[in-house]
Nucleic acid binder design. Structure first.
Length: 490
RNA sequence: CGGGGUGUAGCGCAGUUGGCUAGCGCGCCACGUUCGGGACGUGGAGGCCGAAGGUUCGAGUCCUUUCACCCCGACCA
């Protein structure tokens, strides 16, 4: 394994793709740019879903579902929105096939052409706001706090497993509010939900803050985001929360009678995270032995591996392990007893390491005799012999420690790769090695575009600081209110 | 959409200037020996050589077309 997964100084794409496949998470499908998420990978996504959903409910949201297809005319209602998405839409033009008159399989039936083409949703703002128009008449109907779990399609030129697939799974929250302030608070609330989810569940430290105007969501007034640093030094946008102002309400004519009895347009937000989070998880924590999963997302938290010679010894050890299995399960842990007899224990060790199982417990005849177990942790690869007595409490504590340690490791990595730079020459040189760069910027789109053109680095976000220190733009020398975060990004 | 690369067994690959019966490693199946960090031996199964067309006595190999995937760009909440 170690020789197959390369470190980040070599070809990272190879490292990453290889890891995804070796860890049994996903593979390319027959369909361009799409991926098959395999059972082990999907189990991780399900855990993410469950935890996010819990947090959405906690903040007063409910789930709903809207159609996959969007009439083409809907998309064009909001000028910036159509501008942003038109180039990457899959379009349904017909609804029927027929056998080829020339005998070459199936062809589209020209008589089945749709009156109005349908777009496969790249995001659902338009169809949802078209629906909300009917739901909202009065301020008493507000707020609407809906989320949907869905798939979306964006026909990007270039795809990457988990990070940018043609079809991906996500959740999109769409809320409607009576006031701008309330909508802005919602935008903030949800980006904070994402940030705490990243930290507490994914062990992933993120920066939080607004995007610059040029990096905003198409149709948004303000975009807040969480940004994480991957081990190859590139940034990854892991989630966004948009304040949409009244743009969509105006485009879809969603007005309500306010407390004063006057008609006003509704204020909107939308926010989402996707299976890209899986990519973040993989790229932030993995090492040369494979995937490293934080316990809270690991489909299997503890794997039990028997070490034995011969059948009767295996029987004895497995019944011993079955007992341990039950004790651990009673603690609410997800445990796997690997009693396969066609592979040896050394093979199992490697395999579960590649899959990122946080804790492995091995038991052999020696342990049975001594009343001990061998406990190995995935994050540090350390092993120790521990007494079997009260082992379930030890393991619960260890899982918590691993969860924290993975976070600390990622945080430490980020700190070591975050730099304050003042000179543009130095910036150009250092950006090659990756990392986050805190630099002064004059606030103009021109400077931002120039820097992007010359260095491929973009402004990931404008960090929210209690005491923003002014300075001079590293590029133009003009005054700058505060440092912003530059990085090369996926 | 441009540049480069790859399609041969489940996976990873070799296959020379066209040549006769298409190979290797891993995995799989059977048996035996093993078993505290990816075991070994012996035997066996597994192929429309990405697809279509062409050149030829003969094509995995040459030509044309096409499809898919990977990498680098362009593009991208």
């Amino acid at each position: 394994m170690a020789k197959e997964i390369k470190n980040r100084d070599e070809n990272y794409s190879e490292w990453y793709n290889n890891l995804v496949i070796k860890a049994d998470l996903a593979e390319n499908s027959a369909v361009r740019g799409c991926m098959v998420i395999k059972p082990y990978g999907y189990a991780i996504w399900e855990k993410m879903q469950a935890e996010l959903d819990r947090r959405f409910k906690e903040t007063g949201h409910v789930n709903a579902y809207f159609p996959l297809f969007i009439p083409k005319s809907f998309l064009s209602r909001e000028a910036e929105h159509v501008e942003g998405f038109a180039k990457e839409c899959a379009v349904v033009t017909h609804h029927r096939l027929m056998s080829d008159p020339e005998g070459k399989g199936l062809v589209v039936d020209p008589d089945a052409k749709l009156e109005e083409e349908l777009i496969v949703r790249p995001t659902s703002e338009t169809i949802i706001w078209n629906t909300y128009r009917n739901w909202i008449k009065s301020y008493r109907d507000l707020p609407i706090l809906c989320n949907q779990w869905a798939n979306v399609v964006r026909w990007e030129m270039r795809t990457r497993l988990f990070l940018r697939t043609t079809e991906f799974l996500w959740q999109e929250g769409h809320t409607a509010h009576a006031t701008a302030q309330e909508a802005m608070e919602e935008t903030r609330r949800m980006v904070d939900v994402y940030a705490s989810f990243a930290k507490e569940i994914m062990s992933l430290p993120v920066w939080t803050g607004p995007k610059t105007a040029s990096e905003r969501f198409a149709g948004a007034v303000e975009t807040l985001c969480i940004e994480a640093l991957m081990q190859d030094g590139k940034a990854l946008q892991a989630g966004t929360s948009h304040f949409l102002g009244q743009n969509f309400a105006k485009a879809f004519d969603v007005q309500f009678a306010n407390r004063e009895g006057k008609l006003d347009y509704v204020w909107a937000t939308s926010w989402g995270v996707s299976t890209r989070l899986m990519g973040a998880l993989i790229m932030a924590h993995s090492d040369n032995n494979g995937l490293v999963l934080p316990p809270k997302l690991a489909p299997i938290q503890v794997v039990l591996v028997p070490i034995y010679k011969g059948e009767e010894e295996m029987g004895a050890i497995c019944s011993h392990l079955q007992d341990l299995n039950d004790r651990l399960q009673k603690m609410g842990l997800s445990v796997k007893l690997d009693n396969r007899d066609n592979v040896r224990s050394g093979f199992k060790f490697s395999e579960w390491e590649v899959k990122g199982v946080p804790v492995r417990i091995a038991v052999g005849p020696r342990d049975v005799q001594n009343g001990t177990v061998e406990v190995a942790r995935r994050d540090t690869l350390e092993k120790q012999i521990l007494p079997l007595e009260r082992i379930e409490e030890t393991v619960v504590a260890l899982l918590k420690e691993i969860q924290d340690n993975i976070y600390m490791k990622a945080l430490d990595f980020r700190s070591r790769n975050t730099f304050e730079i003042n000179s543009y020459d130095e910036f150009r040189e250092r950006i090659e090695d990756g990392g986050f760069f805190l630099c002064h910027w004059d606030g103009t789109a021109e400077t931002e575009a120039k820097i992007k053109e010359e260095t491929k680095a973009t402004i990931r976000l404008i960090p929210e600081r209690e005491d923003p220190r002014p300075g001079k733009c590293m590029y133009s020398g003009k005054p700058s209110a505060q440092r912003v975060v530059f990085a090369r990004a996926y």
